[in-house]
Amino acid sequence: MKKMTLEICSGTTCYMLGANNLLNIENEMPSELRGLAEVRALPCMGLCNDKELSGAPYVKLNGKVIEKATPEKIYDAMRALIEE
C-alpha cells in the first residue's frame, strides 16, 4: 500500500487551537497505523480565515481536509482509507 500523507497545519492559529497536540502524532499512533503515513508540519494553509476559524486545527490526509482535527478523527480517517 502506498504511504499516506498526513499534513498538519502548524500555522500559529492551528497550533494554538490544538495542532500543538498533533505534532507528535507519528509516535503516538496505534500500532496498526504506525508507519503508514508520512507526517509533515506545514505553515498556514489559509483554511482558517474569518468564518472557518472554528474549524481549526486543520489537517490534510492525502489532500482531504479534516476540520477540528483530533488524533481519533485522524486515526478513523486513516482506517477508512485502508478499507477502501
Partner: peptide
Amino acid sequence: LGMLAGSGIDIIA
C-alpha cells in the same frame, strides 16, 4: 500567540 495568529503571522514561515 493570539496576537500573532490574529494578525496572520506564522512563526514557522
